Deep mutational scan, measured.
Amino acid sequence: MATKAVCVLKGDGPVQGIINFEQKESNGPVKVWGSIKGLTEGLHGFHVHEFGDNTAGCTSAGPHFNPLSRKHGGPKDEERHVGDLGNVTADKDGVADVSIEDSVISLSGDHCIIGRTLVVHEKADDLGKGGNEESTKTGNAGSRLACGVIGIAQ
Rank of each mutant, 00 (worst) to 15 (best):
P63C: 06
I113C: 13
I100V: 14
T59D: 04
I18V: 12
G74T: 15
V119P: 00
V95N: 15
K129S: 10
G42N: 04
R70F: 11
A2V: 07
L85M: 15
D91H: 12
A61F: 02
H121N: 00
K10M: 13
R80D: 02
P14E: 05
H72Q: 02
S60R: 02
E25T: 07
T138P: 00
A61T: 04
E50C: 15
D91M: 11
T55G: 04
G57D: 05
A2E: 12
L145G: 05
K71R: 13
S35C: 11
V6S: 06
R70P: 03
F51D: 00
S69W: 13
D126A: 02
V32E: 03
P63M: 05
L85K: 00
S103C: 09
P75A: 08
V48P: 00
L85E: 02
G131L: 06
D102C: 09
K31N: 14
F21T: 02
G86L: 01
E50Q: 15
V119I: 08
C58I: 01
L118S: 11
G86D: 04
A141Q: 02
R80P: 00
H72P: 01
L68V: 04
A5P: 00
I114V: 11
A90N: 11
G62Y: 01
V30K: 03
G11D: 08
K37T: 09
D12F: 06
G52E: 03
E79D: 12
V30L: 15
V104F: 05
W33G: 12
T55K: 03
K10Q: 10
S69D: 10
C112W: 08
G13H: 14
A2F: 09
P29F: 14
R70E: 15
V119G: 00
G28E: 09
T59S: 10
A141H: 02
L9Q: 07
S26F: 06
L127V: 13
P67A: 07
G142R: 09
D77E: 13
R144A: 00
Q23T: 06
A146R: 03
V15N: 11
H47I: 01
T136I: 11
I105T: 05
E133I: 10
K76C: 13
V95M: 08
K24V: 12
S99P: 06
D77G: 14
G57A: 03
I100Q: 15
K92C: 12
P67R: 14
T117R: 01
Q23K: 15
S106H: 08
F51Y: 05
G13M: 07
I113S: 06
T59V: 08
V104I: 13
K137E: 08
N54D: 04
